[in-house]
Nucleic acid binder design. Sequence first.
DNA 1: TACTGTAAAGTTTTT
DNA 2: CTTTACAGTA
Length: 733
Amino acid sequence: MPIALERHLNTSQLKAVETVDGALLVLAGAGSGKTRVITYRVLHMIDNLGIRPESILAVTFTNKAADQMKTRVRERLPAGRSADPWISTFHSLCVRLLRREIEALGYGRDFAIYDADDQVKVIRELLKSAGMDSVKPRRIQSRIGWAKNRGIAPGAMADHAFRAEDEAVGRVYADYESRLRADNALDFDDLLIKTVELFEKFPDTAARYGERFRYIMVDEYQDTNRAQYALIGHLARPHGNVCVVGDEDQSIYGWRGAEIQNILDFEKDYPDARTIRLEQNYRSTRTILAAAGAVVAHNRMRKGKQLWTENPQGSKIRYFEGHDPGHEAAFVSERILRRRRREPDARIAVLYRTNFLSRTLEEVFRRFDIPYQVVGGFSFYERAEVKDILSYLAAAVNPRDSVRLGRIINTPPRGIGRTTTDALQSWARAHHASLWDAIAGVADDSAAPARSRRALAAFRTLIEELAASAAEGIRTVELIRQVIEKTGYVAALEDEATEEAGSRIDNLRELANAAEEGAQRGESLRDFLDNAALVSDQDAWDENARVTLMTLHTAKGLEFPTVFIVGLEDGLFPHARSIDDDGDVEEERRLFYVGMTRAQERLYLTCARARRVFGSEDAAVTAVSRFLREIPPDLVDALSEPSFSEPAARMRGGYTGRSYDTTEAVRSVLDTRARTAPRSGAWKPGAKVRHAKFGLGTVLGIVGEGDDAKLTVSFNNHGLKKLIAKYATLEPA
DNA sequence: TACTGTAAAGTTTTT
DNA sequence: CTTTACAGTA
C-alpha cells in the first residue's frame, strides 16, 4: 500500500520528498522536520516508486543520526525485503569501502584506525627521535589535521607556512605519513582522504560505486569538508541524483575543516539543482524562535531564511547572572527541582561551550540529589582497560599496528621495560621495520641481553597465538577470554582488590557483553573493532535521561522542552580563541543559535560574574557574552540584577555560600542544603563518610577547625587517607 | 624493572 | 584543581 505522504507532510516537505531525480538542495531550518523529510523520502522511493533499497545511500555525520534514520525507515517499511538502504556515517561508509578496495592503494585490508590519542603517541615518538622535545605533540597533531583537511601535502607545508612552526611541522608530517603507512594504519582524516584518492586514481571503481548508489542523500551538508564534498561528487557523477539537506546557520564545524561554502555553492556545483526551503518550525515557541533569529541575523555569511511557527508565544527567556559558577549551578539546580515538582518526567538539557564546565554543575547537582547524565568527556571505549584489551584484539588482527602493540607490550608488566623498548626502537629504525619485526629481530639477536630476549620471545608467542585464534574466526568473546587468561589481566586487577580495580573488571565484562551483542548481529571481529573505533560520545546518550549535560556541539540535532545554556561570558562563549576573527565569531554565534533552537518551551541563559581559571586563588571577573546583547530585551526576563560593573573586590575569594543577594528561590534551596549537608568543618570522629573517589570510610581524627581542618579517614577499600576538609568532597554516609 | 612521590602543565568544539 | 610526566629509589 502506498504511503499517504500528504497526511504527514506540509507543502514544502512534500515537494522535497517527491523530488527524487536530479540535484536537490533542501535548506532546512532548525526544527523544520528535516529528519522526517529524509525518512519519508526514503520510504517514498522504496514503497511508492519501487526503487531498490540497496541503490539508496543516506550519509550522516553521527552514528546516532544514522541509527535513528535506520530505525524509522525500518519501522515503516513492510517486512521481508531483500535488503535495507545504506544508511551510515561518512566514516563508516569509507571504512566499508576501504576494507574491500584499499589494496589498490598499497595498504593491507586489515589496516588499523588511529584515533587522536594514537596520533599523538606516534607524533610524540617522532619528535623524540628527531630531538624536538620542546614542541607540543598536540599542536603538531592539530596542524597536521589542518593541512590534511585542506589537501596540503607535507612538502607543501612550508609554502603554506601561515605560522612559524609550520616548516618544522612539515618535516614531522612527512615522517608521520610514512610511519602510518609502515603501521598499515589510517587516521580519521585518512578514512575520507584515502577513499577520495582511491576514486581519483581508479575512476572505474568510483563509477562502480556511483552506479550502485543511484540515489544519494546527505544530511548536515553544511558540515561537509573538502574530502566529503569530493566523495559525494564522485558518487553522484554517473547519475546526478543527489539530495543534500542542511542549514548554513547551523554550520559549527569550520574548525574541523568543514566548508560552509559547500552548501552556499551547491547551486553553482549543480546548475540544474532545485532548492526547497523548509521554514516552518514545529519545535519552539515564538519567543525562542524570535530571539534565536535575532541573534543569527548578525551574521553576514547566510543564504537567509525566515523561520516562522504556529506554536504559541510561550514564556520569556529567563536570564540569570550568578556570582560565580557555584551560584550559577545552584540556580540551575533550583529551577530543575522546581520543574520536576510540576512535571516529574520533565526532560531537561544543560548545555555549555566547553566540557570542563560540567564539573561545577555535577558537583552541585549531586548535592541537590539531582540525577543527571553527562554526554561526552570520556566514553566507554576510551577507558584504559577497555583500550588495553581492544589493543590485544587489534594486534591479533594486524600486528603491524605499532601503536596498539606499544600499548600492550608491557601491560600488564612482563619484564619489557625502558631499556628493552629503547633497543626495539633503535632496531626498528636501523632496519626500517615495524615494531613487530623489531620484536622478532631483537628476540633472535644473540647479542641482546638474555632476559630481554626471553621476555620478547614470550610476548611474540602470545601475539602469534592470539593471531592464530583470530584467523580461525573464533568468536570475539572467546578471543577476549583468551586475552584475559593468557595475559593475567583480570587476575592482576583482582589482586589489587580496590574499588577502582573492581569497576575496571566490570567494564571488561561490559566489553565482553558488547562483543557478544555484536556477534549476534552478525558482526565479525573486524566489524567489532571498527565500531569501537568509530563510536562517538553522543552514542552513549540515553534519550530517556531526565537531566542531560553536554556541549553545544553534541546537542545539535536534539530537542528538549527545557534548555539551559550556561557560562555565557565573553572569552568562554564566544571562546577566547575565536574572538579576534570575525569569521570565527560568526561560527560561535551559529553555535549559540543551535543551542537556543534546541529548546521547545523554556530557555534559560546563565553566566557567572567571576570564574576561576585552574582553581587559582582569586576568581577573575568576567564580562557578559556579547551574544546576550543581540537578543531583543523585550523577549528576556532578567531574574537577577545585572551588575557586571561591580568592583572586582567583591568577587574575591569566590563563592562562599553566604552573604550575597539573589532570588528568594535560590536562597531557600541553599538554606535547605546548609541544613542537610553539614559544613565541611563539622565532621566528628567516628562519623561515616563517603568520598567521591575512595568510597565509604570512617573519620578517625580531626586537627584544626572549619575548612582548614585536616581529617584522618579510614576508607574501607583505600586504607588511611589524610584529607583537608575544604578540598575533600565528603558526604555523610 | 617497577613503583612512588613530586613537579609541571592544562581546557574548545569531534567523526 | 586535576591529570600527566618524569625522576629517583627499592
